[in-house]
Computed example of a mutant assay.
Amino acid sequence: MSLREDAVLVLKGYPGQEELRALYLDHLAAHPDGMWKSCGDGHLTASALVVDPSRGRVLLTLHRKLRRWLQMGGHCEPSDDTLERAALREAAEESGIAGLTLLPGGPARLDRHHTPCAWHLDVQYAALAPAGALEAISDESLDLRWFPYDEVAAVADASVVRLLEATRARL
Rank of each mutant, 00 (worst) to 15 (best):
L103C: 05
S47N: 12
G40T: 11
G96R: 00
L59Y: 01
L128M: 14
R145W: 00
L102R: 11
D33T: 08
R21T: 01
D52P: 05
S47D: 11
E140Q: 12
P107V: 04
H75R: 13
H113K: 05
G96Y: 03
R89T: 05
G34L: 03
A108E: 13
T61Y: 01
L49A: 01
A127I: 04
D81A: 15
R21C: 05
A108C: 10
R55L: 10
A92F: 12
V50G: 03
P53H: 11
H120Y: 14
A91E: 08
D122F: 00
L44H: 07
T82M: 03
G16Y: 10
L88R: 04
H31D: 10
V123T: 00
E94D: 04
S79N: 07
G16D: 03
I137E: 14
T82Y: 07
H27V: 04
L121A: 03
L62T: 07
A136I: 07
R112H: 09
A86H: 06
G40Y: 11
R67E: 15
G13Y: 06
R55V: 02
H63C: 09
P15M: 11
D52E: 12
P32D: 09
A98F: 11
S47G: 15
L28T: 04
D33L: 05
C39T: 05
V58M: 01
D33G: 13
A127F: 15
T101K: 11
A48R: 04
G96K: 04
T82G: 03
A22W: 02
Q124P: 02
H63S: 13
V50C: 03
H27F: 02
R89C: 05
Q17E: 14
M35P: 03
H120P: 00
G42N: 14
G74R: 04
H63I: 02
H113L: 09
L28I: 08
A98N: 14
C117M: 05
R64L: 07
R145Q: 10
P32R: 01
A22H: 08
R57D: 00
G16E: 05
E77P: 01
C76P: 09
L23Y: 02
Y125D: 13
L88Q: 06
T45I: 04
